[in-house]
């Protein structure tokens, strides 16, 4: 089967691109776990130099250097994958550019990614991962200032969200013609989804700031902790509302109900992990820290938070793909516009 035929098997789907996007998203998720392990072990400054570790490309991986240098290795791999993925997306453009200059003899057979906006999103992912690497270096060189460390953790979630979006946009279910539906009721699901995703993102920023505000030998800042709890309540309300609306209004649409159910399940796990993370942190303050239960559960809390965010992003994108403003609101908006023009 020719490449072009394979690409057209599911509309414009390119399986290679989609699989690469999945690989990149998976590697990024693993990188988030590796980063969380660095924070939980207070290993961010296990070496004072960057990008080398103790002046070496591959130092002896003992003590906390295992976590910090391990994180750098995983990050380098993700960076390399992102470069390759971006080249993959722009392959046709790159080959054409080389062909026009006589650097290669034939035009490309492989088309790359045909949609310009997807290619641009890939380029944004590349820019984000470069910025993230520099931010990681900066936080080491500046001895982990709160603002830079929290920004590093936040950008990691944004990058993960970008890679997950790329996987969604290149997937078969996205490229397949999906029947569009009208929004039902006065509360548009699409905008509730956006509100839920934005609240989760803010909650991730608060969580990152809380984690970087105090290592295990210091008490957690009470107000920030309370803010994080309030954020958890807000996320629960918004994501719960989103899921209930989707299940009630579009219960037969697995394209929407699957991510909604998954997001809700992950949220339940995340709330449990959050409580467990706090309990394990304050349970044994006089024991030599960090204790494995605290590290394991806190890292799982970070990872699950990323998954809740990613699932909500998928849900939001899908609602925008298949849901349209209902006719009544459309007519109302048109009439309002006409009235304004007349006035």
């Amino acid at each position: 089967m020719k490449i072009a035929d394979r690409q057209s098997q599911f509309g414009n789907m390119n399986r290679g691109v989609h699989r690469f996007a999945l690989l990149l998203a998976g590697a990024t998720f693993f990188l988030i776990i590796a980063g969380a392990l660095v924070t939980s072990h207070d290993a961010g400054l296990a070496t004072s130099d960057w990008p080398l570790s103790n002046g070496q490309f591959f130092p002896k991986m003992v003590g906390n250097l295992f976590w910090e240098h391990g994180h750098r290795m995983v990050a380098t791999t993700v960076g390399f994958l992102t470069v390759c993925f971006t080249v993959y997306l722009y392959w046709e453009q790159i080959c054409n550019w080389l062909y026009r200059r006589g650097l290669i003899r034939s035009a490309p057979v492989y088309r790359g990614e045909p949609r310009r906006w997807v290619r641009r999103l890939g380029a944004i992912a590349l820019g984000t991962v470069i910025a993230q690497g520099l931010l990681g270096g900066l936080t080491v060189k500046l001895n982990l200032p709160l603002v830079v460390s929290a920004a590093h953790a936040t950008l990691a979630q944004l990058f993960f969200c970008t890679t997950v979006s790329l996987a969604v946009f290149t997937s078969r279910s996205w490229l397949k013609d999906q029947p569009t539906m009208e929004e039902q009721g006065s509360l548009a699901v699409r905008y509730v989804c956006i509100a839920a995703a934005a609240t989760i993102f803010l909650q991730l920023i608060i969580g990152a700031t809380l984690r970087h505000s105090a290592t295990w030998d210091q008490p957690l800042p009470t107000d920030l902790l309370l803010t994080h709890i309030a954020g958890a309540i807000a996320v629960t309300v918004l994501l719960g509302t989103t899921a209930v609306l989707i299940l009630r209004r579009h219960g037969g649409e697995t394209f929407l109900t699957r991510p909604a159910k998954l997001a809700l399940s992950l949220l339940a796990v995340q709330l449990f992990l959050g409580i467990a993370a706090y309990i394990t942190r304050v349970a044994s303050p006089n024991d030599p820290q960090p204790l494995n239960p605290m590290v394991g559960i806190t890292v799982a809390h970070v990872a699950c938070g990323a998954l809740v965010f990613a699932t909500t992003i998928i849900l939001t994108l899908r609602t925008f793909k298949v849901l349209r403003a209902n006719a009544a609101s459309f007519e109302f908006a048109t009439a309002e516009r006409k009235l304004k023009l007349e006035l």
Binding site: L146, V147, T154, A197, A198, F201, I206, T209, F320
Partner: peptide, 21 residues
């Protein structure tokens, strides 16, 4: 709408992070 969301989230995160200064 995606652009608006992206800009909004970036602005909010920058504001939150700037408050740490």
């Amino acid at each position: 709408q995606t652009k608006v969301l992206l800009i909004l989230t970036i602005v909010l995160s920058l504001l939150a992070l700037a408050s740490a200064c």
